[in-house]
Design a protein around this nucleic acid. Structure first.
Lengths: 114, 114
DNA sequence: GTATCGTGCAACCAAATGGTTGTAGAACTT
DNA sequence: AAGTTCTACAACCATTTGGTTGCACGATAC
């Protein structure tokens, strides 16, 4: 079930902010491919466990990943719905742009009449 | 002519970072619709001229907008190519996700044989 | 020529970010 | 029961961010 709720400005801020870091983008990639524990993620980067933990927390607050307990581990799973929502935001910009193009085209048509 | 060059990690960082602020997203929207001077933008927000100037600078470094002199004003123009590039980045995540789905489907098919 | 407008830039400040180490507890292993 | 693994969280630190004010300067208006 896809939860389709309105995104607040803060939601959008958190999503793009979370994506503005190469390590976090890599975490999203990995956890979209398969569920990965936090310590498995930590092994993949040359920073402390706590640092990776913080990155995961940022992604979690942006709902770009979810965490679910499995024994003593926390499995991190990428959330494709959220990615799609971000994509749609950029599509909206695309629409704004197209409307400008259309207006410029209309102006050209008017000129054509003169 | 659309310049189609490879985006570095830092480029991507700057793009998403720039989009992670509501004021900056609004500036992008406005300047996609029509060219707007920096002072016109400044009038639209309840912050100092210098603050708006800084936001424009962040967008400019991310190449989400360009600035061109017109008399004493600097006209800010949104760059739709850059938006599209950001969109494409998210599409790549989409592909990663689909490949996972496909693999899970393949597993289900194997189960079906048993 | 003088005043005003639009801009750029520096200096400053508080808060957020991205990293560290250390401590503690829950869940497995032996 | 004791040791190890995985996680959470706090405290700390340097840097970046997002805002401010003030000043300098080119372009326009009077």
């Amino acid at each position: 079930m896809v939860v389709e709720l309105e995104l607040s400005d803060d939601d959008v801020n958190r999503i793009f902010r979370a994506l503005a870091d190469a390590t976090r983008r890599d975490i999203v990639r990995r956890t979209l491919v398969a569920d990965v524990s936090v310590s498995q993620l930590a092994d993949a980067y040359v920073m402390s466990f706590a640092a990776v933990q913080k990155h995961v927390a940022v992604l979690e607050e942006a709902r770009l990943v979810t965490k679910q307990p499995r024994g003593r581990e926390r499995m991190v799973r990428g959330n494709p719905d959220r990615i799609r929502q971000a994509q749609r935001l950029l599509t909206q910009f695309e629409h704004v742009w197209r409307s400008r193009i259309d207006r410029l085209d209309a102006l050209l048509d008017e000129d054509h009449d003169n």
